[in-house]
Amino acid sequence: MVTVNEQMQSASIGHAVDLQHLSNAEVRKIIRLLNAVDAELRTKLLEAIDRLGPDSYTARRLNTVLASVYELNSSVYASIGEVMAESVVDIGRYEVEYQGSLFTRVIPGQVLVQVQLNTVNLEQVREIALSRPFQGRLLKEWMGDLEESRAARIRDAIRIGMVEGQTTDQIVRGIMGTRAQAYADGIIERSRRDVETMVRTAISHTAQGVRESYYKANDDIVAEVRWLSTLDNKTSAPCRLRDRLVYTNDTRHAPVGHKVPWLSGPGKLHFNCRSTSTPIIASYEALRLSKGLSEGTRASMDGQVPQSMNYGEWLGRQSAARQDEILGPERGKLLRQDKLKLDDFYNDKGKFLTLEELKERLVGGVRG
């Protein structure tokens, strides 16, 4: 019989995959907002540099003629900040719904009539998403830093170009990039990468923060928490070290059976952290629920930590339809035919799921 904790672990791995796809969709949406002003930015840069002129260049005059560029830059990051604030709160609310559905589906009904499940309210979600710092700053503060960094890169590129005697077109191409290189060779490409990192980190921070709050709200039934890391060639050394380790379900997150500290926790340990967690549900004996439980319920509620299972093993156990959804039909077929290993073709940026698509899954029940 598959135990409750084995079901929890499998579901947590699958949910982490879906959240990565959701992050991909959010990144694409935010980058689209940033790119939407490129044409206007190019025009304003051309006008500003022409006004500046090589003979009248000074640092003070540069800031004056770049006023409209700074204003546009500030405006687009303000828009991104508003969209991101709304998105992370929505994602936090979805995470609450997901955990509630998961616990309700996996934990036997005979147990749930005796143990009440608690939830996390909207105010708690908003506090986690908007009022808790990740990597040292709040979401609002990160947006301000990203805005200032892009403005500084633009200003510095113009300064260097003027000193080196570059033409207006050369300076602007250096900033914006060239069509031949899909504009990836411009100095503002770094800004796109920084925004992507911020989006992914904000989402993982919020989802894990809500997850932990849900576990703690139900600490009478969640005995411990297990760290789960995505294991591939992109996995950081700190996350590899912590994969499958168990910690207490409290504010201390003390190590259980090892000495590796929790630190910020999965999803929050570093930028772009893809690690997640899974709850370890207490045994029926620990919950003092032995009376009136069927033999099958007692067997499923053994409280044991499931055997280790990495992502590749989990994927191999999924249905063909689920494998195709994650990898794409062709790669899914290759996986099932043992023609290629997972690391040979898996790219976690290859599939995009929107938040609405994820919410629709709750209608039919949470999957592992």
Rank of each mutant, 00 (worst) to 15 (best):
R288A: 15
N63Y: 10
G81L: 08
I158V: 07
S56L: 13
R51Y: 09
Q20P: 02
T235N: 07
V366H: 01
S87I: 07
G292D: 09
D90M: 06
A129D: 02
L327R: 01
R155A: 10
P329R: 10
L231I: 14
S23I: 11
A207Q: 10
W142C: 02
E127Y: 08
A237K: 09
A184P: 05
Y311T: 04
I80L: 14
S74K: 11
W262F: 15
A182G: 11
L245K: 05
S283K: 05
D220E: 15
S300V: 13
Q124D: 09
L66V: 02
V163C: 02
A152Q: 13
D18H: 09
K140P: 02
T276W: 06
D243C: 06
P238E: 02
N233T: 12
T58V: 10
R192K: 15
N63P: 03
I160L: 11
T248V: 06
N24P: 03
G312P: 02
I49S: 08
G267M: 05
P238Y: 04
A85K: 14
N118V: 09
Q110S: 15
F103M: 12
T3E: 04
R288I: 08
A16W: 01
R240K: 14
G161A: 07
V115F: 08
V89G: 06
R240H: 13
R226Q: 15
Q337D: 10
K140Y: 09
R32S: 15
S74G: 15
Q116N: 07
L327V: 06
V106A: 02
S308L: 11
V120F: 03
V222P: 06
R240F: 12
Q7V: 06
T251S: 14
R252S: 15
Q99N: 13
I187S: 12
W142L: 05
G92F: 09
S283C: 12
R367E: 14
H21I: 04
E6N: 04
E295F: 10
T251A: 15
D338S: 11
K333F: 10
L102C: 05
